[in-house]
């Protein structure tokens, strides 16, 4: 719940100027602007937004009050995502396709019985050699991330496959990122619209788009700091810790941070996007 006390705190908290990002995962306004500039340059769907002069936050540049990505489609409601019980086994494969479409196979290879079962119970005891995993060292290691340059290769977002976004269920979202002075982190906001650009009720968006693990807990409806329209937002109190952990995971062999603060928002979208997995605001492929 966004209380009066919070708003007062936000007003009174000082604008941070000293960079503490490597220690706390939080960023200064300057770092926010720098990371925002990179986001906008790499991903043209994102843009800086300005507001009426009276509504501007003075600690942010006039033309760079917050970041917005307009009318992002939702691929599907989380509730229609497949579940493991939709799967069936095909030999030693777990198959999520519908069995009717399979090319017919010789009867001795796959009994009809197998096909009909919607779900075969999977027994952990079947896996008798899980210990082997530790013995194998040839597994590629994520530590070898050596392709920051790939950022340059990221193609602008191509248009979404239209047939997947059915007309009758077309739901679009304005996704924005503001700077939260109190927690010194970016803050993520979502506002939904139907195909006629009529705003969706936050309760509707909450129930259909927000991962149930987060709905009503980490994600709540609060007035957007600029438009004052109630939007869904992810509470920022843990963002610093999460971002620090994210960066720490990507240290090089010498223990130095692999990424600089400019890619902060690109990484941020990767983790914060998981609250609304179907809303396509994370366009990064190579991080």
């Amino acid at each position: 719940m966004e209380s009066l006390a919070h708003r007062i705190r936000e007003k009174l908290s000082k604008v941070p100027v000293v960079s503490t990002f490597t220690k706390t995962g939080t960023i200064t306004v300057e770092e926010f602007i720098c990371a925002g500039d990179l986001l906008v340059s790499k991903f043209p769907s994102w843009a800086w937004a300005d507001v009426a002069p009276s509504k501007r936050k003075k600690y942010l540049p006039a033309k760079k009050q917050f970041l917005i990505c307009h009318r992002v489609p939702s691929l599907l409601g989380v509730n229609v995502l497949p579940t493991f019980s939709d799967a069936h086994t095909e030999g030693d494969w777990i198959d999520f396709g519908s069995s009717e479409k399979a090319v017919p196979v010789e009867i001795d290879e796959l009994s009809d019985d197998d096909k009909e079962k919607p779900k075969e119970s999977i027994d952990v005891d079947d896996v008798d050699d899980i210990d082997d995993i530790d013995d194998v060292d040839d597994v590629d290691d994520i530590d070898d991330v050596d392709d920051l340059d790939d950022l340059d290769d990221v193609k602008p977002v191509e248009s979404k496959p239209k047939e997947k976004v059915k007309k009758e269920s077309c739901r679009l979202f304005d996704v924005s990122i503001t700077y939260c002075k109190e927690y010194r982190v970016p803050r993520f906001w979502i506002q939904g619209f139907d195909e006629d650009s009529k705003p969706l009720a936050n309760s509707d968006v909450m129930s259909k788009e927000i991962n149930k693990d987060y709905a009503g807990k980490t994600v709540t409806a609060e007035p957007h700091p600029f438009s004052k329209i109630p939007c869904l937002t992810v509470h920022p109190c843990r963002h610093g810790q999460v971002m620090k952990a994210f960066y720490d995971q990507l240290r090089n062999e010498k223990g130095e941070l692999y990424y600089t603060v400019d890619v902060y928002l690109i990484l941020f979208l990767k983790f914060v996007g998981s609250v609304a997995p179907a809303i396509q605001c994370d366009f990064t492929t190579s991080l």
């Binding site: 691929l75 599907l76 989380v78 995502l81 497949p82 579940t83 493991f84 799967a87 095909e90 030693d92 494969w93 777990i94 198959d95 999520f96 396709g97 999977i122 027994d123 952990v124 079947d126 896996v127 899980i130 995993i133 530790d134 597994v139 290691d141 994520i142 997947k164 997995p277 179907a278």
Partner: peptide, 29 residues
Amino acid sequence: DKRATELPELDRFKFLFPSHFFVVQLLYV
């Protein structure tokens, strides 16, 4: 990933997914 020590192992490792599936669906499952 072998460094993700806090995560459980999947009890199966071979999966067939419809080719039109999005990554988001895979993650969810």
